[in-house]
Simulated assay, not measured.
Amino acid sequence: MSRTTYEIVELIYALKRQRVIIYSVGVLFLISFLVSYILILNIPWVQNFGKEMLMEFSTSLNLRNMGNMDMERIFFLIMEHNFYVNMLNYILNIFSTFVIVFNAFILAYVLSISNPLMFVLLICPHGIVEIPALILGSSAGIVLFTSFINRLKGNNFEASAQFWDSLRLFFVSMVLFTVAAFIESFITFGIKSLLL
């Protein structure tokens, strides 16, 4: 078996071995999205908080100036942001769950102020790839955290296996983030310019 084949097989097994963590993070994202949406629709101060967070997020990403940029520049800007978020997820370990909740909240706020059809057309093309990337990136951080815990317990074999699994999950999430950035910059922005 070649090294490349071995790594692909190990990557698939890493996804299977860590499926409980991956599913748990996915459920956390979904619940956070639904609860956030309900709270935003029913509590004015939560809606105001969402507005402020979206403005901060837009400013940090420089979204307002994207209309004047070429597609390649937008792609690299989005990739830079995605790389930063993914590294943050990985480094924060167990606390990457806060990044998941925050992103679910922002997405729920965007849905609450959007026309549902516009939301589907402008978010779904890249969101179908970006949300799993975010979930896998957060899962990688949590698996890394469990690796540290096992190392402290003296379970070095399990810790080593989890460490490598965390890197594999991180790698898959980076590939997905790259695909999502490509879709967002070359397809989503094209749809947006057609619609607006």
Rank of each mutant, 00 (worst) to 15 (best):
Y90N: 03
H126D: 05
E80W: 09
L92Y: 11
E72Q: 12
I123N: 06
C124V: 15
M118V: 04
I106T: 05
I113L: 09
I100T: 14
Y84I: 15
I91Q: 00
L121P: 02
R73L: 12
G127Q: 01
A104R: 06
F83N: 10
Y109I: 12
M71K: 15
I131K: 09
N103G: 11
F119C: 07
N89I: 10
F83H: 04
H126Q: 06
T97A: 14
P125Q: 04
L117E: 02
M118E: 04
V85M: 10
L134R: 06
I131A: 02
P116H: 08
M118W: 04
A108C: 05
I113R: 00
P125M: 08
L77P: 00
P132E: 03
M79Q: 15
L77K: 03
L111V: 09
M79K: 11
V85C: 02
S114E: 10
A133P: 14
N93K: 14
N89L: 09
A108W: 01
N93V: 05
I131R: 05
F98H: 08
V101F: 03
I74E: 07
L107M: 12
F75N: 10
M71D: 11
M71R: 15
A108F: 03
H81Y: 14
N89A: 10
V99D: 13
V99A: 11
A133V: 14
F83T: 14
Y109F: 14
P125K: 02
R73V: 13
T97Y: 07
V120D: 01
I106R: 07
E72P: 00
L92I: 06
F83C: 06
L92D: 05
G127S: 02
H81W: 13
I91T: 03
M79G: 11
I113M: 07
V129F: 07
C124G: 13
I94H: 05
A108H: 01
F119V: 08
A108Y: 00
N86Q: 15
V101L: 07
M118C: 00
P116R: 11
S96H: 01
A104T: 08
M118P: 00
V129W: 04
P132Y: 06
I74D: 02
N93P: 00
L122V: 03
V85D: 01
I113P: 03
L111T: 09
V120F: 14
P125C: 02
I123Y: 07
L122H: 01
L117W: 10
V120P: 01
M87Y: 05
E80L: 12
I106A: 05
L111G: 03
F105K: 09
N115P: 03
F105I: 08
E130F: 03
E72A: 13
D70Q: 11
L122C: 07
H126S: 03
N86C: 15
L122P: 02
E72T: 14
